[in-house]
Simulated scan of single mutants.
Amino acid sequence: MTPAAIRDAADDAPAKVNLALHVVGQRPDGYHLIESLVTFVAGVADRVSVTPGGDADTLVVEGRFAASVPGGAGNILLQATAFARDRIAALGLTLPPLAIRLDKRLPVAAGIGGGSADAAALLRIIVDACPAARAVIAAEAVTLGADVPMCLAGRPALVSGIGEHVEALAPLPDLPILLVNPGVAVATPAVFRALASRNNPKLPPLPPEGFRNAVGLAEWLGETRNDLAAPAITIAPGIDRVTAELRATGALFARMSGSGATVFGLFADRSSLRRAGRGLKAAYPSWWVSDPADTELTAA
């Protein structure tokens, strides 16, 4: 028996942004404990497409950053397919072989979800076809990577543990956000190895009334940190330059996302964001700058 309605389908894998990221401990097994306010950027995304059929799972990668995506068994999309197939088989169902296509538009090893977001998009397609597996796949998705559960949820959230605890939040205000990467891949394990302190203060409480606008969110973010920024900058000093340039262009707030090297800038309005995006693209053609026409915080 096969999952109902597994057929041609596609889903976006939007960029994940850690607006704040505190490292608050470390488990005996070495995994770091975090607290993070996370959101996703509409319109800035990879695209995952699936067609059932064939004799075995296959993967085709295209797009600007295709050359940076590992192939074979090391690819997280093929790992996610095997993961889902095992969970579906435990329910007495069969997931047929899938032909997967990835349009890789986001930089790799960039602190914005990347492969985890791609895996989450594929898992959403699969659980839409097999709803009976939704709960177990969501509960165990962290085994694919710490970012996969938050990317699977795909909405503003307070994330804790090693990434497995995802507390959905009310929508954030509609804010213009620009993502900029200096063209440097940063390996997350190297950043954690360079981390000076693994037991840092937790996030401050979120305002009970939420954030009314960009200014309110920027003020709250000023009380928070990304504890991975300092070690990441020792590996990729260009992160500091990007952050300074975003502030110089008029961003209300700028900070590195995740383990880097992508930096986000929050702007008060879209005209300011568009000016900043055009200026940075012209001044730094080797940098990746998200399309200013598509950058706003996901509201759902």
Rank of each mutant, 00 (worst) to 15 (best):
L246A: 05
A119E: 11
F192A: 11
P171Q: 09
G30D: 06
I162V: 15
V142H: 09
M150E: 08
M1K: 12
D12S: 15
L266T: 01
L246Q: 11
P149E: 10
F65H: 12
S257E: 02
P292W: 14
V17W: 01
A10N: 03
G222T: 02
G250E: 09
T81H: 05
A251C: 04
C130T: 15
L221D: 05
L203W: 12
L37W: 13
I177V: 15
D240L: 06
V142N: 07
V44G: 07
V127F: 00
V24A: 04
F253T: 06
N181G: 09
A229N: 10
A293M: 06
A10E: 11
A90E: 10
E140H: 10
A282W: 00
G238Y: 01
R101D: 00
A194F: 11
I100H: 04
E164I: 03
L19E: 06
I100R: 02
R278V: 09
I126W: 00
N18L: 08
A299G: 13
D128V: 00
S290Y: 13
D8W: 00
A168H: 15
E245L: 15
F264P: 00
D269Y: 00
L123N: 03
V50A: 06
T81L: 05
P28M: 03
S116M: 01
V38D: 04
A110N: 07
A146R: 13
L252W: 08
I6C: 00
S36G: 03
T81R: 13
L195D: 10
G238H: 00
G25K: 08
V41L: 14
G265P: 03
A157K: 05
S36Q: 07
A282V: 05
N226T: 03
G216L: 04
V127I: 12
A84C: 07
L158M: 13
V127L: 01
V23A: 14
A185R: 14
W287A: 08
A244M: 02
S272H: 09
D240M: 02
I125L: 12
G113C: 05
V38Q: 03
L122D: 03
L21V: 10
M1F: 04
A293T: 13
F65S: 08
P171I: 10
R134E: 12
P201Y: 11
A153N: 05
P96L: 04
D269K: 02
G183F: 06
A232Q: 06
A5M: 00
A299M: 09
A185Y: 07
T234D: 10
D118F: 06
A229Y: 02
L228C: 14
K16C: 02
V186E: 13
D8G: 01
A45Q: 12
Q79W: 04
G145V: 08
G222V: 05
S259F: 02
N226W: 00
R278W: 12
G74L: 03
L228W: 02
I177C: 13
A251H: 04
R7T: 06
G279S: 15
P292F: 14
G161F: 11
N213A: 10
T188W: 02
V180G: 01
A99V: 06
A20M: 06
I162M: 10
G72L: 07
